[in-house]
Every structure is written in structure tokens, then in C-alpha cells.
């Protein structure tokens, strides 16, 4: 009896650092966000914060800008992730072929990942600029009209997605490539023995075997894309109109430019809920499909 008590105490002591860390780094901030979201709290006002009940949440449901930012975020995540996955996949397969010189190219291709997103945003901002941008210079070289990359609703969204795709496709490639390299060659031989064409091997063997890697890279990229803010900050500030105002950017301007912490807090809470639910559904649906057919 006393021994089991000692064991339990030891267990508590052993897990306590991890629990404390979890409390300090996860539970407390989320709890605090909820706490803030239930108050009127503005750093810029001398008035002390005061309880607001669900006022901020109620406001959210009426706030067109908030609802717009949700759909903008969703659009961005969809475009960026899909393109990154498809391109990253294709590149991984190219790199996986044993052509000469690809090794160097593969190493070089990782450079964008190492760049600071803010810098990436700034560089793309200047490249896509209508007056000085090098890309529009090329466009005019071909006799075409300059394109409003950052001031047309559709193009601006695509431009931001493009910058994100430029930066993160190599990461997807890296993960898929690593997974490809670790796939056992014999399974493909088995497929060939069974009479599969190369295309069938891709769809029926390679793809299913890459599923865990795809799921991991999708989750990482999706979470990253949902909270993407740097590119919007550098490239469009959410414009034109609200065409690229993703949720984190609206949250940021509300919280850290207007210092409406309570309202921003309620957005943060909603964002946490969406991301958590999204990840849950995603993991259930994609990571664990019904066992093989």
C-alpha cells in the first residue's frame, strides 16, 4: 500500500515538469485569452478593463469584416495548401529520379524555407509592385499591360498565395521526398510482379504508402497557413478592400494597432476553436481512413 503511494508520488514528481510546462505554455495562455475576451480591455484607454460578458462574441456574429476574414482565410489555406501539395509532390518525384545535378538543385531548393517570411513578403511586395516591380517590367517587355498584382482582389489573393507557395513548396517536397526515399523498393517490385503499370503503382501503392507523410505535411502546412500574417502585412495590409484580410491580420490590427484586446481576444478564442476542431476532423478523416479495401 505504502509502496504504491510512493510510486504514485514518484509518478507525480516525474510528470510535474511536463505538466507545469504545458500549463504555463498552453493552458494558461488559452485561459487568459478567454478571460480577456470576456472583458472590455483596451491598452490605449486609461479606463481599467471591465467585465463585458459575451458582448465581444455577440459583436463577432454581427461583424462583416470578421466573417469576411474567415472566408478569406479559408480561401487562402485552400489555394496555398493545394498548390503546395501538388507542386511539392511533383518536385519530390523529380528529385527522386536519379538524374545528375539534381542533388545540388535539391539542396538549393530549400533556400526559400530558410528565409524569414517577413523578408519573403517584402521581396514579393517589391517584385509585384505595379510601378517598380520587376515582374511587371517583364510583363511590359512582352508588350502586355501591367498587371495589378496587389490591387486587384483576385490577383492579390493569388499573389499572396504565390509567395507562400514559393516559400513552402520546398518544405513539402522535402518531407515527401524523404518519405519516398524510405519507401521499400521491394513493394514496388511486388507491384510490378503483380502486373501493375507504373501509373497503377503510383495510385495504388505509392500514394497510399505516402499517406502518413502527406498527412503530417498537410497538418503542419495547414496550421501554418491558417496563422499566416507576415505576407499580408508586407504585401497588401489586407487589401484591396478586404480581399486578403485573413483572420490573423484582422486579429492583429484589432489587438495590436487599435489595442482592442477584448475583441481581439474573442477572435483568438474562435480561431483556436476552429483550428482545433479542424485538426480533429482532419486527423480522423484523413489520417485514419477505414482499413484497407
Amino acid at each position: 500500500m505504502s509502496q504504491s503511494r510512493a510510486a504514485r508520488r514518484a509518478a507525480f514528481i516525474l510528470i510535474s515538469p511536463a505538466v507545469l510546462l504545458l500549463l504555463a505554455l498552453n493552458v494558461f495562455p488559452i485561459g487568459f485569452a478567454v478571460f480577456i475576451s470576456l472583458r472590455h480591455w483596451s491598452l490605449s484607454i486609461v479606463n481599467p478593463p471591465r467585465f463585458a460578458g459575451l458582448f465581444n462574441y455577440q459583436e463577432l456574429t454581427l461583424d462583416d469584416r470578421f466573417i469576411n476574414s474567415l472566408s478569406v482565410s479559408a480561401t487562402f489555406v485552400l489555394i496555398a495548401i493545394l498548390a503546395e501539395l501538388v507542386l511539392g509532390f511533383a518536385l519530390a518525384f523529380v528529385f527522386n529520379s536519379k538524374l545528375k545535378g539534381l542533388d545540388t538543385l535539391r539542396k538549393l531548393s530549400l533556400l526559400p524555407v530558410m528565409a524569414m517570411p517577413l523578408v519573403v513578403g517584402l521581396v514579393w511586395f517589391y517584385m509585384l509592385n505595379e510601378n517598380f516591380g520587376v515582374i511587371n517590367w517583364f510583363v511590359t517587355l512582352f508588350g502586355a499591360e501591367r498587371l495589378p498584382f496587389l490591387t486587384d482582389s483576385t490577383l492579390a489573393m493569388l499573389s499572396i498565395a504565390l509567395a507562400d507557395i514559393w516559400q513552402w513548396t520546398p518544405f513539402v517536397t522535402l518531407v515527401i521526398f524523404a518519405a519516398l526515399q524510405s519507401l521499400p523498393e521491394y513493394v514496388f517490385e511486388a507491384g510490378r510482379m503483380d502486373g501493375l503499370t507504373e501509373r497503377e503503382i503510383f495510385w495504388r501503392i505509392t500514394l497510399p504508402l505516402l499517406r502518413p507523410a502527406i498527412v503530417v505535411v498537410l497538418i503542419i502546412r495547414a496550421i501554418d497557413a491558417v496563422r499566416m500574417i507576415d505576407l499580408v502585412f508586407m504585401m497588401t495590409k489586407g487589401g484591396p478592400g478586404g480581399a486578403t484580410e485573413v483572420l490573423p491580420w484582422y486579429l492583429y490590427t484589432t489587438g495590436f494597432q487599435s489595442f482592442d484586446l477584448g475583441y481581439a481576444g474573442s477572435m483568438a478564442v474562435v480561431m483556436i476553436i476552429i483550428v482545433t476542431l479542424g485538426a480533429q476532423v482532419f486527423v480522423r478523416q484523413i489520417a485514419n481512413p477505414e482499413k484497407g479495401r
Binding site: 505595379e130 510601378n131 517598380f132 495589378p148 490591387t151 495590409k237
Partner: peptide, 16 residues
């Protein structure tokens, strides 16, 4: 206004 006006701010307007 010049092209790209919807993304123009303090620095760019003077440079243009």
C-alpha cells in the same frame, strides 16, 4: 491615379 494606387503609401507615392 497611377497604377498600383490601392497599395500606395507614404514612401511609394513620393518615389513615384
Amino acid at each position: 491615379s497611377p497604377p498600383g494606387i490601392l497599395n500606395m503609401a507614404w514612401d511609394e507615392r513620393v518615389r513615384v
